[in-house]
Nucleic acid binder design. Structure first.
Lengths: 212, 212
DNA sequence: TTGCGATGTATCATTGCGATACATGGGATC
DNA sequence: GATCCCATGTATCGCAATGATACATCGCAA
């Protein structure tokens, strides 16, 4: 188990953590946060919600008629199903959001995990960012060598496409590096200044969790 | 019909256009050209090949035992199925590669079309590049407004993620613009110098084809 | 009062992917 | 000269995600 459905579950938990809402709005919010082309389909959302209901992570919020205190009264809202987090759901969220294994930095999941960095420790954040960075660097190596190997033998357009792709990934690596540095500056104001650049030193403090 | 399977079909046709090969190599080549994380699975490739055989676009190349003239003789190759293009396949390739409709600049297809730009006219290339650019600019607009609307109300990490995404797309737009300019410089050495920056002037010469 | 677009819930067929099974060739290593 | 391992090679199957679609109500403008 624990396919990539985890990231959808995390997104739903995270959004309901902020405020109860119904499926339609969840779809929009999740779509927004995993942004750029990817849209969340109802065919994925509703089965997921059903599953989460069965698991007791979320519950239907029957009394939900409040007027949002702002100007417009917004009466109405009949028959809609509003979901809210349960205690189990909060616990599950805490577990998922602090995971640092591959599932946290795989392409499809990284964005969601990043979006909820606000609910994590700097420790966790750094682990995830470094995981993603080394994943990207692996790809870089592979492509750079294959590019060098095939140079002069391929079409100019193919070359241009690969070059552009390469630069995009390099750019993301730089971005990650900046974020990591920034996190470290906050996390460890000053200690022995040791902590080598990568390759986890593995003193592993706190309630670590790189399951999976 | 005409789903996004078109892009896989185009890729296969394009690669077989260069040289006959068997499925295993096709998978590697296609994976390489749609690059960056996406891999072509056998579960997609073989059904596609079967379909294309049925449609008469490709055929099994039985006499394929040639020694590649280079040093290493490379004897062997028993029982392997080598595919080659048929006349219909070449025709189909010409059709697909010169298409300028949405299917040519949609996320999943653009890369493949770009990879075979060498087999198109400058006219076609410009149309596809402009199509993709305006598609990206639409997204940019949408996200920029939603970003402005939610500013100050969202998490710093969410903001940072959106900012990075925004910059990536802006960067791709710039890249496309450079390519378009470069194509135009080659295509139209000098005329009336009119041709406004975007919003197709629609004089639409030559055998246009924006089907779909 | 009619009509349309946004909101809202729900399901289904298709399809694409990951995993896997199976088979062989070419080198290493001993 | 046998053994092991990895790259090459063909093929299928279960599962999950997607895109499409159906259906219903609400607010609002013409």
């Amino acid at each position: 188990m624990a396919k990539r459905g985890d990231s959808l579950e995390l997104a739903v938990l995270g959004l309901l953590h902020e405020a109860p809402m119904h499926g339609y709005e969840l779809r929009k919010r999740v779509t927004a946060l995993l942004g750029w082309g990817r849209v969340l389909s109802y065919g994925s959302l509703y089965p997921c919600l059903k599953q989460m209901l069965r698991d007791g992570l979320i519950a239907e919020d029957t009394e939900q008629d409040e007027v949002p205190a702002g100007g417009t009264p917004r009466a109405g809202r009949r028959g809609k199903i509003v979901y809210k987090l349960t205690a189990d759901g909060k616990e599950r969220f805490a577990t998922l959001v602090s995971a640092t294994g591959p599932s946290a930095w795989e392409d499809d999941n990284f964005g969601v995990h990043f979006a909820f960095f606000g609910s994590t420790t700097a420790e966790t954040r750094i682990r995830i960012l470094e995981g993603r960075r080394s994943r990207l660097e692996e790809r870089l190596d592979g492509v750079r060598t294959s590019l060098a190997r095939s140079r002069e033998r391929v079409d100019a357009y193919t070359l241009e496409l690969q070059r552009h792709g390469l630069e995009s990934v390099e750019r993301e690596v730089r971005w990650l590096t900046e974020l990591i540095d920034s996190e470290r500056r906050v996390d460890v104001p000053e200690t022995t200044t040791s902590t080598s650049t990568s390759t986890s030193t593995d003193g592993t403090p706190s309630g670590a969790d790189n399951r999976e």
